Simulated assay, not measured.
Amino acid sequence: MRIALYYLIQCTWGVVQSTLGVIYFIFYFSERHYFYHGAVVTEWNAKSSVSLGMFVFVTKEPYFYDKLKNEYTIEELSQRLLVHEYGHTIQSLILGPLYLIIIGIPSTLWGFLPCCNIKRKAKSISYFSFFTEKWANFLGEQVTGQKSMENLVIN
């Protein structure tokens, strides 16, 4: 019942981001896919990960693994990243059509603007300390009961 409700809300209230997710899913159809708490997960070769409605696209090998390999296995980092991205799907459930404005755009700017990258690197600020990412970590952990990215510095 819970999964059915998850799909219903993602396909109605979250229709904008879920439609974008379907387009990405079709484009990356040949990649590995599986379900995670109702979300459709695709492992892709991109450097970063993204969540669009009920569709989660996670990197096959987190680029930051080399910096953290003394503390975490690649499987543990990948699982934590999945929990984090799943948290974004919960944000989509909550915010619906406002998700891309409140979460998607600020998160993308925080991740890719050169001035933000320089600031994070210079001050060793965690990417996951930004409000969109911190909230995704919290929601992912609450719903799945698993650890997320916390405040790992990945720059």
Rank of each mutant, 00 (worst) to 15 (best):
140 G>N: 10
154 I>K: 07
123 K>N: 15
86 Y>I: 03
50 V>P: 04
56 V>S: 00
100 L>T: 08
58 V>A: 12
15 V>T: 10
19 T>V: 06
73 T>L: 00
144 T>D: 11
48 S>A: 09
33 H>L: 00
144 T>S: 12
57 F>A: 09
140 G>D: 02
102 I>N: 02
39 A>N: 11
55 F>E: 08
130 F>K: 10
128 F>I: 01
134 K>M: 00
56 V>A: 02
28 Y>R: 09
19 T>I: 08
135 W>A: 08
31 E>S: 12
63 Y>N: 04
26 I>G: 05
81 L>Q: 12
56 V>M: 14
45 N>A: 11
56 V>Y: 02
56 V>K: 01
134 K>D: 13
112 F>S: 13
71 E>Q: 15
49 S>C: 06
2 R>N: 13
97 P>C: 05
14 G>C: 10
5 L>D: 13
83 V>D: 11
84 H>D: 11
42 T>F: 03
53 G>T: 06
65 Y>G: 04
150 E>K: 11
33 H>K: 12
130 F>G: 05
30 S>T: 13
41 V>C: 09
145 G>S: 03
19 T>Y: 08
102 I>P: 01
99 Y>W: 15
57 F>D: 11
152 L>Y: 11
120 R>Q: 13
99 Y>A: 01
119 K>M: 13
1 M>K: 14
63 Y>T: 10
73 T>Y: 06
17 Q>E: 15
49 S>K: 05
7 Y>F: 10
111 G>V: 00
37 H>T: 00
144 T>V: 07
122 A>C: 03
35 F>T: 09
103 I>H: 07
141 E>N: 07
91 Q>R: 05
117 N>V: 04
8 L>T: 12
45 N>L: 13
81 L>M: 12
95 L>R: 03
15 V>I: 15
129 S>K: 13
18 S>Q: 06
17 Q>W: 07
74 I>F: 01
72 Y>P: 05
75 E>C: 02
77 L>C: 08
59 T>I: 00
71 E>D: 15
56 V>F: 04
118 I>D: 10
60 K>P: 03
83 V>I: 15
74 I>D: 03
137 N>D: 14
10 Q>A: 06
60 K>D: 11
45 N>I: 04
79 Q>Y: 05
68 L>Q: 09
97 P>R: 07
94 I>W: 08
106 P>C: 05
78 S>C: 01
63 Y>Q: 08
76 E>R: 10
60 K>W: 01
64 F>G: 04
110 W>T: 05
74 I>N: 08
92 S>K: 03
9 I>K: 14
